[in-house]
Amino acid sequence: MDWSVIWSNHDLYLSGLWSTVLMSLAAIATATLLGLVVAAIRTSRIPVLSQVARAYLEVFRGTPLLIQMLFIYFGAAYLSGFGITVFGAALLALTLYQGAYIAEIFRAGIEAVPRGQWEAARVLGLPRTQTFVGVILPQTRAIVLPPLVGQYLSLIKDTSIAVVIGYVELVRQGQAVIDRVGSPATSYVAVAVLYFVICYPLSLLVRHMERKAVTA
């Protein structure tokens, strides 16, 4: 393998890496927020709303992200008559898909907090949202964080699916190098290594947190 092609095209890889990181950070933020809201609705047992939340979970966990992304970019844009940017469509699909998993992670954490915590807060006069944010959520940290960061790992790798709607990220830039100079094996190894560079620190963090959770 000829490793010099990597260095001579390093600007392409770096720009791809940046696009991947940007999409990952944006989707982590929005999917976490969506997951939190959906988990709050699910655990509140508000009649209609919690059933809507449940239906959302089933649909987005039960269908492939690839299809969701294609549908949002090509299908929904066509149906509504409004255009959507490639970045916007990829972000929306990742948010909806990952948000469904993240919601279940938060729900498990929320349900592990004893009911007495809600009751104590209620008699003290704390409003529900205040109780959720100030009392319940902080107690879910040990349960939620390890699987949550694990889910972020899968989200980061899932950003590569955005290639199918034309988002120019790490994989696409790797292909661009191949189109230009060949050596697919070298280029794909480089791409894989760059994903690993993003993900490995996170998986070390998960392992560290899990060890702490066991000893705590």
Binding site: Q117, A120, V123
Partner: peptide, 17 residues
Amino acid sequence: IFGHVGMVFQQFNLFPH
């Protein structure tokens, strides 16, 4: 009445954090 009566529980229900 919330905030104007006090309740003490068997399991304390202190906020652990």
